[in-house]
Design a protein around this nucleic acid. Sequence first.
DNA 1: TATTGTTATACTCTATAACTATA
DNA 2: TATAGTTATAGAGTATAACAATA
Lengths: 149, 149
Amino acid sequence: MLIKDYRKDPYLSLLRPLVEAYLAFYRAGTRHIESMGLTSAQFDVIAELGGTDGLTCVELGEGTLITKGTLTGVLDRLEAKGLLTREKVKGDRRATNILLTSKGEALYKKVFPAHAEFLKPFFEQALSKEEVKQMKPLLKRLRDSFEGS
Amino acid sequence: MLIKDYRKDPYLSLLRPLVEAYLAFYRAGTRHIESMGLTSAQFDVIAELGGTDGLTCVELGEGTLITKGTLTGVLDRLEAKGLLTREKVKGDRRATNILLTSKGEALYKKVFPAHAEFLKPFFEQALSKEEVKQMKPLLKRLRDSFEGS
DNA sequence: TATTGTTATACTCTATAACTATA
DNA sequence: TATAGTTATAGAGTATAACAATA
């Protein structure tokens, strides 16, 4: 989503750099994740489940912003890969506890550090520690501004 | 694509803010674009075509990073909406010139300023002009770092 | 031989609405 | 009545490979 022109506006001139920086980051990251055999949505689910004792579909949906009908399909494919299981919750027989299998947990533990290590050099190459420290609060304010919409 | 933990690393601590800021921006932007009747891919194509005399599929693909097989479908849907046309190129009978119709051009002229105006207040609310100026080169370096991958 | 664009194929994500089972 | 999750449906984007027309 790029707005051409409008580059002269002091605020809108930030649009392009923001979009381009994120997309470059995202594409590199996605390539790496897909090279490990996961889609973005699947990665997000694994990320959400990793290190927990399991979550319900509702909780997972809130964490990943995937709606429940869509989630069923994503979970099906991860289950077919043997990465997670669904188990009944006692106390509420409507609910399901979604949790990583040992295979899924192993993948989580491998994939996350691997992905972080993959990303890190790009940040190091681009920015000094000082600049990172400068940038963080600005990004957070930007997030909060858009989230209040 | 969020990496939990790793927040203590001075570089990787930037990951979450970057992703969250962009996603908040992107979601607000996408909602607005979809409220105008376009998908993101369609918006990107209109953005690329707007203000030009037309582009070939190859050029459009390079600009939007949509592969040619996918592009055909996106163009079909925009053509069905009466927003663009395909015309033969003389000189190379393999090539097609994709260009906005007057309806498409009118939409481009309406949708772009509208979208920019929609986004602007969020930036103004979040950042000072000084901060925007600070941030731009950092984002560009980040982009270049990831693009070289 | 190489390039342009379409077609065919297949998969994933996406949302919504209807549904079942349970609360 | 409300909630949890699945199923059904439909549409959009995605890539790849095969193809026809042209260069």
